[in-house]
Design a protein around this nucleic acid. Structure first.
Lengths: 252, 252
DNA sequence: CGTCTAGTTGATACGCGTCAAAGGGAGTGG
DNA sequence: CCACTCCCTTTGACGCGTATCAACTAGACG
């Protein structure tokens, strides 16, 4: 680990993936390397965050994880999709409901402890406002997803999902935006409030309409992001190119 | 307006409804009476909060308001139901989507300005952590509603709604919990991701099943909260009695 | 008493869920 | 290297649940 000054602020080269540490929170906490360590979760493995809520935070370094809530009869709803750069601070679930963070693919997570700061959290105003910005962004994302589940039909939901994944983790090429899906149809269904078969059917429909092209079952290509966006009745910020998966902290 | 000391903290008697000011944020800001004023919104009137996001906050004093998001084709989704005591800090909506706060019934709102504090916001650690707690609670509520829209069927949604309204604003009596609905069937539908007729049909179903009793079209009675709760597959915190509508700040 | 809007109820359509069966890749063992 | 297996995915047939459209009812208010 190599600590050096950059732009007036002490930073540390993250051993996992340097770029992730452009996250403000990460940067602010990175002066204390002893308080951080990384874990790898395999698909299906869970992280229970309940008790430590807001005493530690987690940053997704690579892979994809899901914030899940389970109902008593086994139904599952994914309330948030966590891709690299995303910061998790507690489970964000009402106490009493069963919730957990679950890896959808092999996922590396960097854990940062807030305990051990000199003095209380509020003695670090920069950090507090960075955390505030984070949670505020999460609330915006959550509200937007609420509209998706409440008022969009299955075709609109799936189009939005493919569009969103493309702008989050797609790579621009001459023939369009290439995306590798890090999750199963069932995961997608649980995220969109649909079921597996419906998701599958809508994938083929969109495939036939030409809006997307599937290369393998988990890799697809969006020839025209704007055309795909026209399937979605929400006002989205227009697509301006791939974000590169690691810079989408508080910017969305 | 009358300022006096109470419990070591300077407070101000809120001219509207003293009890609302038990809100931590409200209490913390109340030392500067000049920075607050109240407005009344009639049903349908809107408050656009966009630009002033997080420079002012609003507390619902009485009535009911809704955080709404509109789609380009006119569909509406209510992403949050704001009852007395609730604190609004910015629209919580992704920039670009059309969102607003709308009064569902006659609503009194107390506006508190954060500008004009001595020094930046982070110079007031108590206030910052109170705001943090507020937004955290909102995120929990939003996530829970997401599960409702994604995985509950119409009967479960309507049961949950009636249960929730009863615990928020119901008044206990010998024959059960009495509730006065401050909104139309259409508002309820937009909140639950259903349509007017479906909501109406489910009200009559629940009425016939005995789970609720309607006194007028907007007033109902829940004879047994636990029985109603058994219609809902989510793990809810058990009903412990009416919260009195004004104490449900960060407690849910 | 008439008008207006919110709410209720019914008939019907359709979208999505459910159940069932058949494909298709990836990994394993012969 | 091929056959086998397993699980994910796709596709089809069917039924239920919710939206849609339309008619009617009930309060609210002048």
């Amino acid at each position: 680990m190599d600590i050096h000054a950059r732009g007036g602020q002490t930073v540390i080269d993250c051993p996992m993936a340097g770029k992730v540490c452009t996250q403000p929170v990460c940067r602010l906490l990175s002066t204390r390397p002893s308080e951080r360590h990384t874990t790898t979760l395999h698909r299906g493995e869970r992280l229970s965050v309940g008790e430590e809520s807001c005493r530690k935070i987690w940053v997704i370094v690579s892979g994809t994880a899901a914030m899940c809530t389970g109902l008593s009869d086994g139904r599952r709803q994914i309330v948030g999709l966590e891709t690299p750069g995303e910061v998790i601070c507690g489970l964000m679930a009402a106490p009493g409901s069963e919730s957990w963070l679950e890896a959808l693919s092999e996922t590396r997570i960097c854990e940062l402890s807030l305990a051990g700061l000199e003095g209380p959290l509020c003695a670090h105003p920069d950090l507090v406002s960075a955390l505030f910005a984070l949670i505020h962004t999460r609330l915006e994302v959550c509200s937007a997803h609420l509209v998706t589940l409440g008022r969009l039909d299955s075709r609109e939901r799936v189009s939005l999902f493919l569009w969103d994944m493309a702008s989050r983790m797609g790579k621009q090429a001459e023939d369009g935006v290439h995306v590798e899906l890090p999750m199963t149809r069932e995961d997608i269904a649980d995220f969109l409030g649909l079921n597996t078969e419906t998701v599958s059917r809508l994938f083929t429909k969109l495939k036939r309409s030409g809006a997307v092209r599937f290369l393998t079952r988990s890799a697809y290509l969006v020839p025209d992001m704007d055309a795909l966006q026209r399937h979605i009745p929400t006002q989205l910020s227009p697509y301006t190119g791939p974000t590169g998966a690691l810079q989408n902290g508080a910017s969305r």
